[in-house]
Simulated assay, not measured.
Amino acid sequence: MIRNVVVGRVRPGTDLAQVQEALDAIVALPVEGLLDVRVGLDAGLRPGAWSFAITSDFVDADAYRVYDAEAEHNRIRREQFDPVCEEIARVQFEV
C-alpha cells in the first residue's frame, strides 16, 4: 500500500472556506485503487503548523501514479489549491 501525504500552507488572508471547498473536491474524486482519503484544516493547536493536510492510501504505486496524472485531480490542484497556497509539500511512502 502507498500512503500519500500532502500538507499546504495558505497565503495570509485566505478564506479557509475556499480551502475546505478544495479539500471536499479531493474527497469527491472517484479514484480507482484508492482505499481511503482523509482531509482537514489545521486545528490550531500549535503555532507555525501547516494550514491543511490530505492523506490518501492507494493499493499500490501504480494506482497512485494514475491518480497523480488524472485530469480532474490536476484541475483541482491548479484551479483551487494553487491560487491560495504559498507552499505545498508531498511525500509518498509504503505502508
Rank of each mutant, 00 (worst) to 15 (best):
Q80V: 00
A63E: 06
F93Q: 08
E70S: 12
D36G: 01
Q92F: 00
R65M: 08
I76W: 11
V66P: 02
I76C: 07
D15C: 03
L35M: 13
R11G: 05
E32N: 12
N4L: 11
R78A: 14
V95G: 11
D62F: 03
A43T: 02
D82Y: 12
E79Q: 14
A53E: 09
E72A: 12
G33R: 07
A61F: 01
R38L: 00
M1H: 12
E87C: 02
V27P: 07
S51F: 00
A63M: 10
D82W: 11
D42P: 05
G8A: 07
V91S: 12
A17S: 13
Q80G: 01
I88W: 07
I2W: 07
Y67E: 10
A25V: 03
C85W: 04
D15I: 05
A43R: 04
M1W: 01
P47V: 04
V19H: 00
P83I: 09
A43I: 00
R9Q: 15
I54R: 02
E86P: 04
A89N: 11
E87G: 06
D57K: 02
G33M: 09
R65C: 03
F81H: 07
V27H: 08
L35S: 09
T55D: 13
T14V: 14
A28W: 09
F58D: 04
V31W: 06
D68A: 14
D57G: 01
V31L: 06
A17V: 08
V66Q: 10
V84W: 06
A89H: 12
Y67T: 09
D36S: 13
V37D: 02
Q18M: 07
E72G: 01
V5D: 08
N74V: 07
L45R: 06
V19A: 10
A17M: 02
V59Q: 12
N4R: 15
R65T: 11
V66S: 11
P30K: 14
A61D: 12
E79L: 12
A71E: 14
L41Q: 02
E32T: 14
E21Q: 15
V37I: 15
Y64P: 01
M1R: 08
Q18L: 15
V95M: 11
R9G: 00
A28H: 12
G40K: 10
A63F: 09
Y67H: 15
A43C: 09
S56P: 03
E21Y: 05
G48E: 06
V10S: 04
R46W: 00
N74M: 10
P12A: 09
D57N: 08
P12H: 08
E94T: 12
R78M: 05
I2L: 11
G40M: 04
V39L: 03
E21F: 02
G48F: 01
M1C: 05
M1K: 08
R65N: 13
D62H: 12
Q92E: 15
D36R: 15
M1E: 07
E72L: 14
P30G: 06
I54E: 11
D60T: 09
R75C: 04
T14I: 09
Q92K: 10
V91G: 12
Y64T: 04
E94P: 03
V66D: 09
D82G: 02
L41C: 02
L35W: 01
A25R: 14
L16I: 09
G33P: 04
R65E: 14
F52P: 01
E86N: 07
R65Y: 08
P12Y: 07
P12V: 08
V31D: 10
S51K: 05
A22R: 06
R77S: 11
